[in-house]
Simulated assay, not measured.
Amino acid sequence: MPTIDANGVKLHYQDTGRGYPIVFVHEFGADHREWETQVRYFSRGYRCITYNARGYPPSDVPEDLNQYGWEFSRDDIAAVMRGLGIAQAHLVGLSMGGYAVLQFGLKYPDMASAIVAAGAGTGSPPHLRDAYLKEAPETARGFITRGMAAMAEEMGHGPTRIQLKHKDPRGWQEFMDHLRAHSAQGMSNTCARYQALRPSLHDFRDAFGKMTTPVLLAVGDEDAPCLDTNLMLKSAIPTAGLWMCPNTGHAINLEEPAAFNAEVERFFAAVERGSWRRRE
């Protein structure tokens, strides 16, 4: 099983296809398998890299809480790229992964040729911030006290995920099967140290204003916790475009894979031919 060392933590990865590299970074409730529809599509012309974050088997699940956090998530992307000898790549992240790729763009601008941040921003809007900071630690404890099955059932029927069940029952069931099998300890540690402690994206508005990397923001119009933040990011990042997918919740790449793939492909094509415009 292929792994890459990320500061002492082994991360499982998959490397599919040939061509210019795309690195996919998964969300909190998923792992590398939820990018399957994107890998099958883009590996026809690109080299597609997927990996499991720390805390998500078969990647290592450190017991030490200090081995988790948004900075680790950001830097693990760099570790994966360096481990595979990739100097620069397109990046695609969803939710927790969307947060990570945006932060990666701030710290490692020369390593990111294009960034797709989908469903990023949960817990960031100022008017929702206090409630989020109270809820996240409780969720972290729930994985240990209630177990993965109960927590997965609650997550899968949440107001921004139930859309997938309505649209694609088999796809939703596959997502749920994967989610139930995650490490309760890994999920708890990730939630306690990454989700609960990461700063609001609004705190980085000035830094985002200096970004030069092309960015595509993608969000479902029923992903209420992320809408305000994506509007902020669109206004802050001079190189950002915003695509809002109708009647869609949080897991946009699973709900609308054909539309998501097409929009991302158009974005990459514009970047590669030099026609993705910076806002005047």
Score class of each variant (00 low, 15 high):
97 G>N: 11
208 F>W: 15
181 A>M: 01
170 R>L: 06
16 T>K: 03
68 Y>E: 11
172 W>M: 03
116 V>D: 05
6 A>R: 00
187 M>G: 04
131 A>N: 12
5 D>I: 02
82 R>V: 03
51 Y>T: 06
112 A>K: 12
8 G>I: 02
8 G>V: 01
203 D>W: 03
100 A>I: 05
258 A>D: 15
178 H>D: 10
154 E>M: 13
232 M>A: 05
101 V>G: 08
263 E>P: 02
130 D>C: 06
179 L>W: 04
27 E>Y: 08
265 E>L: 12
61 V>W: 10
41 Y>R: 14
250 H>K: 04
204 F>H: 06
74 R>G: 05
264 V>L: 15
87 A>Q: 14
152 A>Y: 04
62 P>C: 09
132 Y>R: 05
129 R>H: 15
243 W>H: 11
20 Y>D: 13
103 Q>C: 07
164 L>H: 04
219 V>E: 01
177 D>T: 04
248 T>E: 08
141 R>K: 15
181 A>I: 01
277 R>T: 12
103 Q>H: 09
42 F>D: 03
84 L>H: 12
31 D>H: 11
235 S>V: 01
226 C>R: 04
263 E>V: 14
233 L>D: 00
20 Y>C: 02
180 R>D: 01
187 M>Q: 15
37 T>Y: 10
6 A>C: 03
45 G>A: 11
278 R>S: 14
10 K>Y: 00
273 R>K: 14
263 E>R: 15
206 D>H: 13
195 Q>R: 08
90 H>M: 11
116 V>S: 06
266 R>A: 15
237 I>A: 01
183 S>R: 11
255 E>I: 03
83 G>E: 09
202 H>T: 10
217 L>N: 07
44 R>F: 04
128 L>C: 06
185 Q>D: 13
2 P>D: 04
223 D>W: 06
229 T>D: 06
56 Y>F: 15
94 L>E: 14
124 S>I: 04
207 A>W: 01
15 D>L: 12
84 L>S: 11
253 N>P: 08
12 H>M: 02
117 A>K: 00
113 S>G: 10
224 A>E: 06
147 G>D: 05
260 F>S: 07
195 Q>K: 09
196 A>K: 12
248 T>Y: 08
120 A>K: 00
97 G>I: 08
120 A>R: 00
241 G>W: 02
159 P>R: 00
59 S>N: 06
14 Q>L: 10
61 V>A: 10
128 L>T: 11
7 N>S: 12
16 T>A: 09
221 D>H: 04
182 H>K: 10
133 L>H: 14
138 E>M: 12
26 H>K: 11
38 Q>K: 10
12 H>I: 02
233 L>Q: 00
21 P>S: 13
34 E>T: 15
9 V>W: 00
151 M>I: 05
260 F>W: 13
5 D>A: 07
200 S>D: 04
225 P>T: 05
61 V>K: 10
170 R>K: 12
153 E>G: 08
208 F>M: 08
52 N>M: 03
210 K>T: 15
99 Y>H: 15
3 T>Q: 02
191 C>G: 07
205 R>Y: 02
91 L>W: 11
213 T>Y: 08
179 L>N: 04
193 R>T: 13
103 Q>E: 13
271 V>R: 05
190 T>F: 11
227 L>M: 14
240 A>E: 01
220 G>H: 06
71 E>G: 01
228 D>C: 03
119 G>L: 02
208 F>E: 01
231 L>G: 01
263 E>W: 03
173 Q>L: 09
154 E>Y: 05
233 L>V: 00
29 G>V: 07
125 P>V: 09
